[in-house]
Design a protein around this nucleic acid. Sequence first.
DNA 1: TGTGCCGGGCG
DNA 2: CGCCCGGCACA
Length: 529
Amino acid sequence: MESKYILEKSSVGTRVGGADFNYRAGRSVLRDTRVLMVEKSSSMQAYTHGPILYKFAVDDLPSEVKKDWSKGSGLTPGGRILQDTEKTGLRDQKDPGSTGILKRASSTPNPGLNGQLPGSYMHLDTRNPGKQAEPASNFKAAQGQHAPQAEKQPLSSSHIPVPRNRKPSGHADKEVMAATVLTSLSTSPLVLYPSSAPTVSDPANKTWKEVLSTSYSSSTSGNWSWDASDQSVPSTPSPPLSNDNNKSFLLSSQSDDVSEDATESTHFMFEDPIPRKRKNSMKVMFKCLWKNCEKVLSTSSGIQRHIRTVHLGRNTDSDYSDGEEDFYYTEIEVNMDSLTEGLSSLTPTSPTTTGPPPIFPSPLSDASHSEHISMNGFQSHAPSLLSQSAPSTLCHIRTDHAYQATAPVSIPVGPELAGIGNGNGIGPGTGTENGISVSWQSPPYIFKGVSGPVTHVRPVGLGEKRQPSVTPHTPVKNQALNMPAPKSTSGTRKPRGEAKKCRKVYGMEKRDMWCTACRWKKACQRFID
DNA sequence: TGTGCCGGGCG
DNA sequence: CGCCCGGCACA
C-alpha cells in the first residue's frame, strides 16, 4: 500500500523531491522518505538536507550498490519499514562510513569516522544549516513543526539530537521548495494524493497542505493567478476538463493509486483544477534564475549541475550538493500541446477561437517570474477554453468593406427579425449589445491573422433564427474560408451561402440597408458564408 | 418561386 | 470604378 507510493515516487523522485516530503510530512514516515532521498541525492543531488546524511554512504558504495538501493526501495513493495531497515543494514555492512555519518549527524562533535571524506564531510554539516537558514525562511516556520517529527522516526532519535535542530530548517526549506515545485508540476497529483490518502486523520496533513498551498501560491502560483483571473477565463469550462484529464492521467500513470486516491482526491480541493490541468500537456522545465542566465533544462539535476558549476563555481565532479542551487532555478511548465498546436489551432469547439489570440500578450506580461515558455503554453491553451464561454465580443470589429463603404449602417434588427427594429444608424457595439441582437446586428468580423482575409463570424442571432439550417454550417464555413469554392458546380461559381443575405434580412423594402454588394447583386459582404 | 451572385453593360 | 441588371444556379 504505502510502498506503492514510495515506489511511484521513487521513480519520479529524480525530479520530484517534494513528493517525498509530502508523504513524509503527512504521515511522518521518515524511513521511506529517506530512502528516497538517498536515491535522489545519489542520482541528482537535489535536496540535500535529508539526503546529506546518507550521501556519503552512497558515494562510498559502489555505484552498483547505489542502484540497488534505489531500485530496492522502489521494487520491494510492501516492505516499507523493513526495506528501510534492511537498507540501513546494508549500508552499515558495506559501508562503515554510513553509520558513521549517522553518528556524526547526530552529534556534531563527532570525531571518528571518516578518514575518507573528512573535509567534505564537515563541509556539509556546516553548510546546510547556514544556507538553509537564508532562503525559504517563510517555509521554515511552517515546516519546522513537521520536520522534527519526521526526523525523529527515521533514525533512532536518540542518536540524532543535534541534527534535528539544524536539519529541520534545512529540510523544511528544501522540502517546501520541492513541494512547491511539485505542486506546480504536472505531477502534482502525485504529491497530493499521497499526503491525503495515507492518513487523512492525521492533523499534520492539514498543516502540510496549508503549507503547500501557501508556498505554492506565493512562489509558483504566479502563473496561475493570471490564468484564472486575467483572461476572464471563466473557470467554468476548464475545471471540469482538467478534472477529467487528471483522472485519465492518473489512470494511465498510476493505475495503482487511482482507485484509492481518486476518491480522496475529490476531497482534496487544494489547487485542484489548475495543477491537474497542467499535468496533461505541461512539460516541466527548469530554468536558471541566475542573472542573465536563461538556461533552461529539462531536468532538475541538470539545472542544478549547471548552477553549481557555472554559477556557484562548485566542483563539477562531486555529487555533493548543498542545495543552494535550489534557489537559483525555478521550474516552468511548457505546454506541449499548445506548442504543437499553435495558435492557429482549429478548435472545432468554437469558431470564435480566433479571437482570443490578441489577448494573449497581456497574460504574458503579468506573470513576471513565470517563464515565458510556460506562459505561451497556457495562453494558447486558454483560448480554446475562453472562446467557449466568452464569445466573440472581444474581437468584434465592424468592417465596412469596399462595397459597403457607405455605411455603418444600422444593421439593426430588422423589424422582421426581432421586432426590435431600432434601425438607428449606430455602430455595432453601441446600441443593442444585448444577447442575440449583438452578434446579429453587427456581424462581427474577426481578423484572423494577417493572411486571413477576414474571418467572419456568422451572425448568430436573429438571422439564424429565421433559418435554423444555418447553425450547423457554422463550422463548415471556416473550412470554406480555407478552401474557397469547395464545390463548384458551374466552374467558379460560389456555392451560394446558406446564410441570410441582406435581401432576406432586410427585405426589399429596406433595400437601402443592404450592403452595397447586395444592392448591386454581388456577393453579400455583410453576411458572408 | 425566391434568392444569391456571376458576368457584363453603362456612365 | 461605381452602379445596375440579365440571367443562371440553387434551395
